[in-house]
Simulated scan of single mutants.
Amino acid sequence: MHSLIVSPFLDGYLAVRPGSTTCVRLPAELYEEMRQRAQSDDTVPEWLASAASEAWHLDVHDRAAESTVLVREPAELGFARASWEINLYCNFGCKHCYLGERPLAGLGWDDKVKLIDIFRDSGVLWLQITGGEPTVDPDFEGSYRYAYRQGMMLTVSTNASRLWKPEILRLFRDLPPYRVVVSMYGASEESFDELTQRRGAWKAFQKGMAAARNADLPLRVNIVVTEDNAHEVDAMAALVQSWGLDHHVYTNMQPTFSGEGNPLLVQSTEFLRKRPVFEGCNAGITFYHADPHGLVSICKVGRDDQINLMDEGIDGLRRLGAISDRLMLRTGGCSGCSLSGTCRVCRPLAKVYQEAKAPLKNYCQHGDKKEMVHS
Rank of each mutant, 00 (worst) to 15 (best):
Y13M: 04
Y13L: 02
Y13R: 07
Y13D: 03
L14M: 09
L14W: 11
L14F: 07
L14G: 02
L14Y: 10
A15V: 14
A15Q: 05
A15R: 04
V16K: 05
V16I: 14
R17G: 00
R17K: 14
R17Y: 06
R17D: 00
R17S: 05
P18H: 04
P18S: 05
P18K: 00
P18R: 03
P18G: 03
G19T: 06
G19N: 06
G19W: 13
G19E: 04
G19S: 05
S20D: 07
S20C: 04
S20R: 00
S20L: 00
T21I: 04
T21K: 09
T21P: 13
T22V: 14
T22N: 05
T22K: 10
T22M: 05
T22S: 04
C23S: 12
C23H: 10
C23G: 01
C23A: 14
V24G: 00
V24R: 03
R25N: 06
R25F: 00
L26V: 09
L26D: 10
L26G: 06
L26Q: 10
L26F: 09
P27R: 12
P27L: 06
P27V: 15
A28N: 01
A28E: 10
E29I: 04
E29G: 00
E29F: 10
E29V: 03
L30H: 12
L30S: 01
Y31I: 01
Y31R: 05
Y31S: 01
Y31F: 13
E32F: 11
E32C: 01
E32V: 10
E33P: 05
E33Y: 10
M34N: 01
M34P: 01
M34C: 11
M34W: 10
M34S: 02
M34I: 12
R35G: 02
R35D: 00
Q36E: 10
Q36P: 01
R37D: 01
A38M: 08
A38Y: 07
A38D: 12
Q39K: 11
Q39L: 12
Q39M: 11
Q39G: 08
S40N: 14
S40F: 14
S40E: 06
S40W: 07
S40T: 15
S40R: 15
D41N: 12
D41Y: 01
D41C: 09
D41S: 13
D41E: 08
T43D: 13
T43P: 06
T43S: 11
V44W: 09
V44K: 04
V44S: 03
V44L: 09
P45S: 12
P45W: 15
E46H: 08
E46G: 02
E46C: 08
W47K: 12
W47P: 05
W47A: 04
W47N: 05
L48M: 13
L48I: 13
L48W: 11
L48K: 09
L48F: 12
L48P: 01
